[in-house]
Design a protein around this nucleic acid. Sequence first.
DNA 1: CTGAAAGCGCTTACAG
DNA 2: CTGAAAGCGCTTACAG
Lengths: 342, 342
Amino acid sequence: MADQLTISDIASKAGVSKTTVSRVLNNSASVKKATRDKVLAVIQRENYSPSSAARSLSKRVSDTIGVIVPQLNNPFFGEILSGITEILDAYNLTMLCMSTDDNIEKDLASLANIKNHQVRGLLYTPAVDYVSSYVDKYDRKRVLSLLHKIRAPIVLMDRQLKGLDLDGIFFDDTKGVYNATKALIDKGHTKIGIINAPLGEWSLARIRQKGFADAMRDAGLPVEQRYIFAGDYRMSKSYELSKELLAMKDRPTAVITCNNWTSMGFLKAVHECGESVPEDISCIGLDRIEALDIVGLNFNFIERDAVYMGKKAMELLINRIAFPDRPKQNILIDPPVVIRKL
Amino acid sequence: MADQLTISDIASKAGVSKTTVSRVLNNSASVKKATRDKVLAVIQRENYSPSSAARSLSKRVSDTIGVIVPQLNNPFFGEILSGITEILDAYNLTMLCMSTDDNIEKDLASLANIKNHQVRGLLYTPAVDYVSSYVDKYDRKRVLSLLHKIRAPIVLMDRQLKGLDLDGIFFDDTKGVYNATKALIDKGHTKIGIINAPLGEWSLARIRQKGFADAMRDAGLPVEQRYIFAGDYRMSKSYELSKELLAMKDRPTAVITCNNWTSMGFLKAVHECGESVPEDISCIGLDRIEALDIVGLNFNFIERDAVYMGKKAMELLINRIAFPDRPKQNILIDPPVVIRKL
DNA sequence: CTGAAAGCGCTTACAG
DNA sequence: CTGAAAGCGCTTACAG
């Protein structure tokens, strides 16, 4: 078996020039129908498909898009990827996928990698909020420089980078948490806790906190500092904090948990204390937890449809590739609050 | 800002030839220390990194590995990806990721795509069991031909393709299901059902069924055809079948559910019927369902560590790339049965 | 409608 | 230890 079929092989077998083969491959210039058919037949018969490396090199862009997410074993991002691929295939694009583990160095390395691959576009969930003053100035410089060097369009997913003129798609967490908090208040709760993350580090934490604070303020309720817990959106930390919360003498009667793992940590702590939700303490979490829903556990949540986010992000990117000069778009998805039992 | 820095720019700035720059980039031939340092300094200062397309074209292999999985929104595969990336980064490889949605056409398209990208290797979970007689002969031919054209090493993950001399890593589902069934029998159950998938289509279904049948036989128990349900490893189908099962007059007292979604569908049905596990009917599922575990729902399961599988698969691939001629390896992971409450 | 030639940005014998 | 030159497999002006 010959090594790898090249465009020259096809050209000679079809009795035409490489140029012509290239043209039918790319549907670029007009080729006489008879010629085209002949070439197509050979391509078909030989099962030829062009090398993407060669193609990328001469076109100066590849047929790939980059996807950078902070975690791959979080179903939230799995669903985003799933949404992305739904659209991707229709455009003959391939996904270069990297996970940064919420780590700055890996994030920068991924960005550099993306640059070298000359992707057509990038779907990006930054590992940290580089624009925040919390982040080291040097790291901010580096990320900005890399972002600038990636000539392809970039669409932000789920996490904002304020002040950078980029397309983006986000959930309106402020509204989601506001509505969730309000639901709790309407039910009569006044002592409401929240397990979130450090506001400096996470823009997500800020917008979620805002929804909470706004709702409390609108109801004339004070925001008690001691009812605010800063986790890291991971389960184990949330579990610890929840234990603390549950052990308080004057503890909250309801809690907002700010992502799926935070909710899991909370529920674990509640269960271990022999208590239950919502009998002993109420809870509304950010993100559906499918399994709980299914077994009728009455878990209340703010629903973020991640598959939808992935699809929309990819559509934004496709549009941006097609129309580079249109003003940037930021889509805000309104996440409904689903109350099973308060 | 200049368009894109090339190796020529670096060469001229450093006052050496492209060849020399290439050599320090690749650490290929020996370069005088002074020269190397000079070149390195320029690369550093200019923040240069070579185009991967150009590199791939001249080396005839890319710096990517392909990963083909059937689903991206199943946490099982999310965890596999997560395991893969843990290893990947250390080798400066990038992951091309595709999802086939358990669909033959998408699977073939992905394989073709992988071929064009000249990946260094492929981690592959086939959409269907191409070797089974159930699959159209023409499709089998096509997949075999594609697999053959991908010159890079291939490692199978989770789903076997019997008769093809490939590396692979799998869970010993036969043993897992055997032990689970035995646990049920030891507890006194004799009427045991199983929600699996069609045996012809799925090799996974066959090995799981075998574990079940073996355990029944070893216990001298008959395998009742009407207690065997063939779903499709998706939730909605399992839900339907479970409703049927629960409505049987002489129904099983215990059920084996053959993947995470099958378990979810079953639990949903049980819950909707106002019954509970294990009081009204016992269950052991394949795959942990983290959320249930956490809220103390006493869900029994056969534990498949998907992150571990991803890591090991990647390690197999790395080894195969390094030693192309060693005999192929097949790793069988023994999945423990975790019993919470029977 | 078609083809010869140059070029994309690297690597790799080959020569020195 | 270093460099000039050819080549990887495509695409794209340019010319006809």
